[in-house]
Nucleic acid binder design. Structure first.
Lengths: 344, 344
DNA sequence: GAAAGATGTGAATGCGTATTCAAGCCAACG
DNA sequence: CGTTGGCTTGAATACGCATTCACATCTTTC
């Protein structure tokens, strides 16, 4: 609650430069009608006084804002921290600012979003969190465009951008099937999260109608350690029967599985057991893993999200809600055998 | 430049609730003097109208702000993305907001900081970027407290929090020396960056006055791929002579080295070559690496940074500048042999 | 029961800027 | 030379809320 020092105002600069206050405002507004000579004089005076326009006052007066709020969840997942990074860079590139919020998994994101909406923001991006219908109503009332990132939205009243989780996972499923997977373990993420649900369903769809398939599911808690512990718990007992294949609904869990299988059970991937993830995070691509996965095209997803934010709020909700589903890119990797033909 | 919809104001709520505008303000101010009954009536009216106080107007009027700007560089390094995450969570916990900026390595951070200072922010945290003396002057003029994170500051006119890079690296050097390292390769980061410089010097200090030591340095560009490529470039020729030990000044580069040595040259760590990094990022601790490193205590560094931000700006500069140097924690790992006695 | 205090309230004002508007200026034009 | 039109300019005002201050209401005290 720091009390701000009395700032140098545009009046002070105006006085020093011998002009009026609006002139100062114009000097700082690109394209405003003002003589170059006068502008230079004003800018010199401003520099001398260490003056910079107060954004709050400016926003209040002009009734516009250049801030986009980004609410991220689960920043422990490198995919989301990469996403945040791309958002920051993209938004900054368009001369806007990022108001960053973080929501602990499953915590009251409503509070955080409420905080965000007290700012006259240009838009709100929500990654991996739910939004109560009450908040949707509020955002409507405030005229704030909202776009859900990588979240299928219940009731479909909100706009969103997401990767084609179903089809991407289906592709992985088909590859595993072709590679001979029969006994399969799926490592789920958040059981409520649409991402995990869609990926599980997509993956399972690849095995529909195929005889002799056993599919089991365990909870990996969307995290490295969650998945790792799930492996240890599941296979730690006496004489475990290992599956042929493991599909983790995200890469960070796949990596957790790989480490546990290697270190705790001495299994080789893909010789003893095949593995796939989803997301395409950097660490999964590195030599020790070379994970077979589907990459979410983050750059494109982010740019489409920002594009949607330009739309009027009323065009982002209800019947007008825009759903953009972007196909993922298969990364062959080396954790499913027989993928030589995919290599470039 | 979205024009904001005309918002519901406190006057609207006041009218609906049959009270005055100040009453509405008080209803939203914790601890303000107002009857519970009246507050409830006002809150009900606010909810009905979808009213939330406009933070900009509120800040402008009360002359205080609850935003802290965080300028991050090099978010590709997991250490910095973890740091950003900790900042966001810590700041949010104290009911303040984070204005996030990103600076590409070596790019004009001045522009970005100037942007940040147009907000009446409570404080500015700068990670891995320089600050021109002009900007320092500006921040002084604006009365904005500035704290450098993990950056030794030239001329020492600014406050900062950093890990004890010199001593931490010296410890690693001594361990390698004890383990028999004689021919050593140091993988540098940004040659201008204080972090890299201090770590190199600290590490070298462990070998002062010891005969028969050869130390070579290569540039790893502070990144995974930079370090990896440096390895390939350095050892890719015919009949390379490998060193006994490699010290990468950060973990992400150490991981890059490990992958290259393993995959491209078939070397085993630590049997063929020992390795150490710095930072203590999560991925370095995982099974395939078990990197010996020094962990920067991020939580503590962040909390001390935020503590410093509370101080009056004039107490953070010049002679009053506060330097907090926090010791790192050795993580034994398995990439230097003979560290059994360190294991708990 | 009156005086002193504690508390709740609204009218008015200030925060620092952008915007409107009418007036001023100059050049080019007929 | 008078006029039209474009470009600059400053006075006044709006933006939405917090705060101050004086007043009204209620409670406590002897």
């Amino acid at each position: 609650m720091a009390r701000l020092k009395t700032r140098v105002t545009s009046f002070d600069v105006a006085k020093l430069a011998g002009v009026s206050q609006p002139a100062v405002s114009r000097a700082f507004t690109p394209g405003a009608s003002i003589t170059k000579e006068k502008r230079d004089r004003i800018l010199a005076a401003a520099k001398e006084l260490n003056y910079v326009p107060n954004v709050f006052a400016s926003n209040l007066s002009s009734n516009r804002s250049n801030m986009v709020a980004v609410i991220s969840g689960n920043l422990n997942n490198p995919f989301y921290s990469e996403t945040l990074q791309v958002f920051v860079e993209s938004i900054q590139r368009t001369n806007r600012q990022v108001l960053a919020f973080s929501v602990q998994d499953g915590r009251d994101s409503d509070d955080v979003m409420m905080q965000a909406m007290r700012y006259p923001i240009d838009g709100l991006v929500v990654t991996s969190a739910q939004m109560s219908s009450e908040l949707v109503k509020l955002s409507e009332g405030l005229g704030i465009p909202v776009v859900m990132f990588n979240r299928r939205v219940e009731g479909s009243e909100l706009s969103g951008v997401q990767c084609d989780n179903f089809e991407g996972s289906a592709i992985l499923g088909r590859l595993m099937n072709a590679a001979g997977a029969r006994r399969i373990l799926i490592v789920r993420g958040d059981p409520q999260g649409s991402t995990s649900i869609d990926r599980v369903q997509g993956f399972r769809s690849a095995f529909d109608g195929i005889a002799g398939i056993e599919i089991e599911e365990v909870d990996g808690e969307s995290s490295y350690s969650g998945a790792r512990n799930a492996m240890i718990r599941r296979f730690g007992g006496p004489g475990p029967r290992f599956p042929d294949a493991i599909f983790a609904v995200n890469d960070i869990m796949a990596i957790g599985c790989a480490d546990a299988l290697n270190e705790n059970f001495g299994l080789k991937i893909p010789d003893d057991i095949m593995l796939a993830g989803f997301d395409g995070i950097r660490e999964g691509q590195r030599a020790p893993y070379s994970l077979t996965t589907v990459r979410q095209p983050v750059e494109r997803m982010v740019s489409e999200t920002l594009e949607l934010l330009q739309a009027a709020p009323e065009n982002l909700k209800g019947a007008e809600a825009q759903k953009r589903v972007i196909p993922g890119d298969l990364i062959p990797g080396h954790t499913i055998p027989g993928m030589g033909r995919w290599a470039r």
